[in-house]
Structure formats: structure tokens, C-alpha cells
Nucleic acid binder design. Structure first.
Length: 264
DNA sequence: GCTTGGACCTGATTGC
DNA sequence: TGCAATCAGGTCCAAG
């Protein structure tokens, strides 16, 4: 999409998680996408109109690309799917379709000039794999915090971009109990946790992400990281390291999987 | 100010 | 087979 114009946008319902922008189709019609970027789990398309189209996949959102001229970037999909909510008709003939059964995703337009004030992005913490994220940063960010470390790692204002799966996997890799209070992590544990977070994210990206049930790349291919989970969704199975039984608990309403023997 | 839990929504799976 | 209950990758907001 980068460098191409959106010839026409087809909006098939009024809202996703939030209402779609007012006059959405009109505001993006004929706009060129000057730059496509990602921040944490947010996608940002900088438009030639001076607005930024912010997109989030929620839990079940996906983009698929179809059509186009022979020889151009082209993926075939299985045809029209239920829950195709927004279709971008691109210069060159491709269609880029946003599908999202649960509609936890969203799309918003925001002036590029004031993008720094965009509320959903302005309080994000540093991303794993960035210079701002390190054991020293964790020491500072977790100091004095009472919430369990599992909840702190899911907090996007502390670290941006980690979800439930990768938090479980990173804590296992670092040998830290998800129930441990955040304030007891700084020091040696943070020194193990920071590289564990980076390793999990890097490996997951290299494997093409995780497919629980409906994740897919733009060509419909599934991610493969889920074949490497050490603890996530492995309740009752033996720990790959020590053979103890992997446990599942609920923290802040989310499932946590961990090895009670390896993670202290 | 910090933390937790419910809400948002549909579909797949499990258990009766 | 059919139905109801439960659970799922994220974020926001109200209540405690």
C-alpha cells in the first residue's frame, strides 16, 4: 500500500470497536499512502491528505490482499468472507480487506500535525527490541509496583507491544513466577527478564507470529510460533525443562500458564 | 494514583 | 444432535 493511492474505500458497517471516522470513505478517497508504520500493536498509514489512518487488529482482525495486475503483489484468498468490514480499493487493482469477526479492532483518522497527542499512543512505554528497553529500564519501571509481574508486563504503558501469550512465555523463559509482585523483580530477575522478552519477540517474529485459531498473514498463511510455546495453552502437560505439570491460573481476567517448579 | 474486573463481540470447543 | 456454558490473541473505563 505504501506509495499507492486509495482509489476508493468501501465501508460496510458504521463501527468496529469504535465508530468508524465521519465521512470515512470521502476523507481517504484518492489519498496516497506516503508511509506505513507500526507502533506497538497499532498500524499507522500517513496519508497525502495530512491525516494519519490508525488501525488496530484487536484480537481477531486481519488484512487480506487480493486482485491486482499479473506480476504485481498478489495473494489469492478463498473469496468473500463473513465479517469483511472495510475494503480498500488500491491504485493498481488490488483490494485490501479488513476482516474482524469480534470487531475488537478499530480505525481512526487523526491529523498528522498533532499525531503526538493521539491519545491511544501517547502513553505507550518503550518497545522490546528498542534502545529504550533494558534491564535498567525494568528496574525503574517496576520499582514500588504492587501488581503481579504478569499484569505489569501486559500494561502497555510499561512495555508496549506484549500480549498475553508472549508475557507467559517470557516469564517462563526468565524463570519468574507470574504471581511475583512487580517490585520484587528489579535486580537479578530484571536482568533475566529483559533479554527473555527480547528473545521471545524476536523468535515469534521470525516464525511469522502465532496462530491460535484465526491469525493469518495477508496471504492467509498461518504463523508457526505456537508450535514452540513452552507453557502457553499447555495446562496439564509436562514442563519441557523439569517435567512438572504446567498450571493455568487467571490473573486480571486473563489466563496465565506457568511451571510452578521452574518459575519462582 | 494504582489496580482490578467488567464490557465490548462472535465463533469454536466442551460438557451435559 | 442440540443446547448452554466457557473461553479466546486487546483495550478502555468505572469502581474499589
Amino acid at each position: 500500500m505504501e506509495g499507492r493511492r486509495i482509489l476508493r474505500l468501501e465501508q460496510r458497517r458504521a463501527d468496529l470497536r469504535f465508530p468508524l471516522p465521519d465521512r470515512f470513505a470521502e476523507r481517504v478517497a484518492n489519498a496516497r499512502i506516503d508511509r506505513l508504520a507500526r507502533q506497538a500493536k497499532f498500524l499507522a498509514a500517513y496519508l497525502s491528505t495530512g491525516e494519519v489512518l490508525v488501525m488496530h487488529l484487536g484480537m481477531t482482525g486481519r488484512f487480506t490482499i487480493a486482485g491486482g495486475q499479473p506480476g504485481s503483489f498478489h495473494h489469492t484468498t478463498g473469496g468473500a468472507l463473513a465479517h469483511d468490514h472495510v475494503v480498500f480499493h488500491m491504485e493498481g487493482g488490488e483490494t485490501v480487506t479488513y476482516n474482524d469477526p469480534r470487531r475488537f479492532g478499530f480505525m481512526e483518522l487523526w491529523p498528522a500535525e498533532h499525531f503526538g497527542a493521539y491519545p491511544r499512543l501517547k502513553d505507550l512505554g518503550p518497545e522490546p527490541l528498542s534502545n529504550g528497553f533494558s534491564a535498567a529500564y525494568l528496574d525503574r519501571a517496576l520499582a514500588g509496583k504492587a501488581a503481579p509481574i504478569k499484569a505489569a508486563l501486559l500494561d502497555q504503558s510499561i512495555i508496549a507491544g506484549l500480549g498475553n501469550i508472549y508475557v507467559c512465555e517470557a516469564l517462563y523463559r526468565a524463570g519468574i513466577s507470574p504471581k511475583r509482585l512487580s517490585r520484587s523483580v528489579p535486580g537479578q530477575r530484571a536482568a533475566r527478564l529483559a533479554p527473555a522478552v527480547n528473545a521471545i519477540i524476536a523468535e515469534a517474529i521470525a516464525a511469522g507470529g502465532s496462530s491460535i485459531s484465526d491469525f493469518a498473514a495477508t496471504d492467509g498463511a498461518l504463523g508457526y510460533f505456537q508450535h514452540r510455546f513452552d507453557v502457553y495453552d499447555r495446562e496439564g502437560e509436562p514442563c519441557k525443562h523439569c517435567g512438572s505439570i504446567v498450571k493455568r491460573i487467571v490473573q486480571s481476567g486473563r489466563s496465565t500458564f506457568y511451571c510452578p517448579a521452574c518459575q519462582r
